[in-house]
Design a protein around this nucleic acid. Structure first.
Lengths: 202, 202, 202, 202
DNA sequence: AATGAATGAGTTTTCATTCAT
DNA sequence: AATGAATGAAAACTCATTCAT
């Protein structure tokens, strides 16, 4: 007599992950209790353990879901853009948007994911790799088409783009100033393409 | 008649701060216990409380000491360099060196300092501001001398430099690959100055 | 679907309060630990915190329960007695009985309740007031009926009765001598009514 | 080379007892730390242990000194009064004064002395006995001279007087109202002598 | 499947007491 | 005699996790 189908089960599980995301991003991993999460999900704390073996696993699920979502989103956006410059700016724009709209999740990611034991080789690491490859692919294509200087180190660009935007997002968060996503993305793209050097001097 | 002078006292205090730095950077703030720190310092846990009123205070001390050290170091290095490009590369180089040599501390800083209650307007915030101004000053000077395009947003550059190097350091740490500080600094400086665009296309 | 009903819940809570009463009265508030109480109640220390937010709260609960019990008991006994003298003696008798049977609780009350922060205006204060008013009401009635000298200060009488019995109870406890409640109550009532002065001299 | 004589030694000891009295009475025994006491006495915390083997011993010393003082004071005052009624009122007056002026010490006494292990047969118990005997002696004398009804139980009177005044003092402390020592003493004496019964009815 | 009562190890912090100097 | 650094044994309280119902 299966009264509750796989559908309902998955639904419950999603509820719990959603609740965990909400509380983790608000309070941070350490300061969040399983009861906080359960209450937020409208279930008992015991039930969470039916779906997730530990608090850590729940974090993993939140992070994976986040990654999957942004990879899908950004891949799609970039796929729709045509040409090197447009693709690059699109990715930068969507990444800025992400950081600005999902700061809590990003912070959670940054502070926790890297301390996840066995990160190397983990599913999360693989997702991370895939996310990064969106940019890498754009750069490789750009190089092949002659838009990008062949001496440029793709990994360095990746660090500057993702690290720089992260830093920017935090600074804005702290100061409370709103961010104009389009404008900031344009500026970053421009900076990345041409650097800071004055043409007069160059 | 204190037989144990202020010297020994300060020494002990330094021992405890050093131990705290070591353990905090290895395990993170939340996962570190006062007993861990005390044991590392070779003292009892009770003694740590003679010098620091709380675990939080100890973190503050670690962070402040760190900031003071790097500000002094980088200001001095930059001060010795002559000319815009040299100054910029010097700062980037020293920042890379810092992140690579002190990754744990940087991570601690990033994950904890920003969640410090009352960060805005705090002593730490002021130190942060001062550290950032080293780069800002270089850029302003560079603009005045015509090396930097006037349309460049200094804060954006700051984000790209500090955020990018941070990201780079982390990636290297995770992968365990060694970093050639001089080479990486040169690459970053070059990237920052000229961007990624191919001259052939530009 | 809670399988363990409110009944069981209340039962547990009562167990813990009872255990707290036992240990507090034996060892005093400060010297009692939550583990002492939990062990006495046959539960873990963590569980006590499910029911009471703090050790202080547990004390409050013990005190309130005590007060409620004695107010109900004494009001009922006094209500059944007819006439001023009988009412007065009844209250004195029941108060003596209380002190003799519940000395530990009374001591707890005396030593702790008065140092309770925010005692003034608290629920406990209100209960205290109500307990005191049982005697006050008897005295007022006695005055109206001409049994009590109008110049008598009711509050003073209250102090003599409650304070005196308290003192007596303690002395007896220390010496370990049994107390004949009826006899002592009669003596106190007599003393209170007529004073110590010899009629021969009066 | 005895540089510091017994005199200075005794002086130090007195300083420490005085400091202990001040802090104990203000904060209570449990909440007072040895460092509080040492600081108040202007000495190091280690030194206190040269004079007193433990915190408990220090409490004992404070209590003994207090007892010795009030016994001497009250015995002297009572000794100067002439006649039963005057002696009785004098003792009551001085006891009220004591409670009102030294509330902290009295509270300390009440809350701590009775939990002193081995109170029975202790020096403090002996002092207590002696203090009580001041009143007993007055009553015995009063009986012999026909002022006091022979059926009166001296111990009961003692309880009413000491317990009653204690209760009164606390009530006043809590309410913050000032106490007119002379007036209150007169009222209590009157109540004790004549009781509350209306003459009209008696 | 679902609950939430129950556990107990772990955390920060305090403080009486000791002892090298 | 005097100091105060140092200890370590608690204590209050929290929370991930388990399990009877």
């Amino acid at each position: 007599m299966p009264r509750i189908g796989a559908e309902r089960l998955a639904h419950r599980k999603n509820d719990i992950v959603a609740a965990a995301r909400a509380v983790f991003t608000e309070r941070g991993y350490e300061k969040t209790t399983m009861i906080d999460i359960a209450r937020q999900a409208g279930v008992s704390d015991g039930l969470a353990y039916r779906y997730f073996a530990s608090k850590r696993d729940l974090l993993q699920a939140v992070l994976d879901e986040f990654y999957a979502r942004i990879i899908a989103h950004n891949e799609e956006c970039v796929g729709r853009a045509i040409g090197f410059a447009a693709r690059l700016e699109t990715l930068i724009r969507e990444h800025v948007r992400l950081l600005v709209e999902d700061t809590g999740l990003v912070r959670l990611f940054i502070t926790e994911v890297r301390s996840l034991e066995g990160y190397q080789g983990s599913h999360t690491h693989e997702l991370n790799r895939r996310y990064a490859s969106i940019l890498t692919d754009i750069l490789v294509e750009g190089m092949e088409q002659g838009f990008v200087d062949p001496s440029v180190d793709g990994r360095l660009v990746r660090d500057m783009v993702f690290g720089g935007i992260e830093h920017l997002a935090w600074r804005r968060i702290l100061s409370g100033q709103p961010v104009d996503v389009e404008e900031v993305a344009a500026s970053i793209t421009n900076l990345l393409l041409h650097g800071i050097k004055s043409n007069a001097q160059g």
